[in-house]
């Protein structure tokens, strides 16, 4: 399945919050759907789920108009929500039934998912009596209880300890292996890097960056090098760089263990930089291509402007 979101526009009152969002997701792969708070991620997901109507734009699945009611979609919202005073099993069956599963099948599925997530002991307990982490796992089980074809996970790791995080990682990998389409939204970039082949970064209601993560990293690392030398801290090294590498490279960033250099425009700058470093007599400890983390890319793209969500709206 290929899901195409094309040119979505949405306004609340006079304010337009989405200005033509377009991206694409495929089954059997996970798409990292990223953005700062209030960027428009939740609004986009709600349009996808047919909770809001887009003012303009369209959503297609395999080239046909996407009608969410025709597909099994599992949505784990960032704002967790189940009935605190009702029994876990009851509400899981209720939600599965609403999503088109028979009550008998729903009970079986609920049992299976509660066991898979190691919370089967709480099936007959009221949700409010569970710890935050276990509530989170019940929420995830409720998202998956109807065996969805499309899974949308908004901050699925929040509130989970490392052991539970590992269980969830395994579950997500299983979903991907089972050819499900996974849309994964998180501010914890390490998780996104772990699962997602593709990313979309939304900023102020527009797509700021999208594509294959590997390719994006390569693009962002192009003409950049990392450098560390013995006996000099990165900050001290950064002070000496302009004198040594003038005309070939400049300091792009100073990290805890190394300095990132940006090569100047021109032929063979990498080789010239290396030669100058050797000539300078510095004892080079680390020299190589720079591969940025997703966090660096994210901060570089959207981290500079202040972007608060619109009052009264959870975008």
């Amino acid at each position: 399945m290929i899901l195409e979101i094309k040119d979505l526009h949405k306004s609340f009152g006079e304010k337009e919050v989405l200005h033509g969002i377009s991206f694409q997701a495929e089954s059997g792969r996970a798409l990292g759907f990223l953005g700062r708070n209030g960027a428009g991620k939740t609004t986009t997901i709600r349009i996808l789920m047919d909770v809001f109507h887009a003012d303009r734009g369209e959503i297609l699945l395999d080239g046909q108009k996407f009608v969410p009611q025709k597909y099994r979609i599992g949505y784990l919202p960032e704002e967790r929500g189940l009935y605190p005073k009702r029994r876990v099993m009851d509400q899981m069956i209720f939600l599965a039934s609403l999503r088109g599963i028979s009550e008998k099948q729903a009970r079986q599925n609920a049992k299976r998912w509660l066991e898979r997530l190691e919370v089967e002991a709480y099936a007959d307990k009221k949700l409010e009596t569970l710890s935050k982490g276990n509530q989170q796992k019940v929420q995830l089980a409720s998202t998956l209880v109807h065996d969805p074809q499309i899974v949308i996970l908004d901050e699925p790791f929040s509130g989970l300890d490392p052991v539970n995080s590992q269980i969830l990682k395994d579950v997500i990998n299983e979903l991907i292996a089972q050819d499900r389409m996974v849309l994964f939204s998180s501010h914890q970039m390490s998780y996104v890097e772990e699962f997602c082949d593709q990313i979309v970064i939304i900023h102020n209601g527009s797509v700021a960056l999208k594509g294959e993560l590997k390719q994006i990293k390569k693009e962002y690392g192009r003409n950049r090098l990392i450098l560390a030398v013995e006996d000099l801290a990165p900050a001290q090294l950064a002070e000496r760089i302009p004198g040594i590498l003038e005309g070939t490279a400049s300091v792009s960033a100073v990290k805890r263990d190394f300095v990132i250099l940006e090569l100047s425009e021109g032929e063979d700058m990498r080789r010239q930089t290396m030669r100058r470093l050797i000539d300078s007599g510095l004892s080079v400890e680390l020299f190589g291509s720079y591969e940025p983390s997703l966090n660096d890319i994210f901060v570089a793209r959207v981290g500079t402007e202040n972007n608060q969500p619109q009052e009264g709206e959870d975008q």
Binding site: V51, P77, L98
Partner: peptide
């Protein structure tokens, strides 16, 4: 209550 405990987030996407 469904709004305040956010159950509505899941419900409106289910029916």
């Amino acid at each position: 209550n469904e709004k305040s405990n956010r159950a509505i987030e899941v419900l409106v996407t289910s029916t």
